[in-house]
């Protein structure tokens, strides 16, 4: 089943069907993630967002002439607190 939104470790990718006109610029760039059905772009159910370089996700968002695609990168997990350095030993 196709979806309008998928999420993975790198973030969330979605298609806004109120804007999408189904011209397939996304399919041209990332055929492994997008399909066109009934005149709109959909995200493949089995799509593995993690297999796609985040740069390409930003490009597919910027390349949609209808501004229908949004890629929201997941913020990096906060780093574990490390022991404060001991003054004078660096």
């Amino acid at each position: 089943m196709s979806k309008r939104q998928i999420s993975g470790e790198s973030g969330v990718l979605s298609v806004d069907h109120t804007l999408c006109s189904g011209t397939g610029h996304c399919v041209d760039r990332l055929p492994q993630l997008f399909t066109i059905e009934h005149g709109r772009a959909w995200l493949a159910d089995a799509a593995a967002l993690s297999t796609v370089d985040t740069q390409h996700l930003h490009e597919v968002e910027a390349g949609c002439p209808w501004f229908a695609i949004t890629y929201q990168p997941r913020p990096p997990a906060p780093a574990e607190e490390s022991s404060p350095a001991t003054p004078g030993l660096e």
């Binding site: 069907h17 109120t18 804007l19 999408c20 006109s21 005149g39 709109r40 002439p65 209808w66």
Partner: peptide
């Protein structure tokens, strides 16, 4: 784009 979208 919104005013000229397919749905509108």
């Amino acid at each position: 784009v919104k005013a000229l979208s397919a749905s509108r």
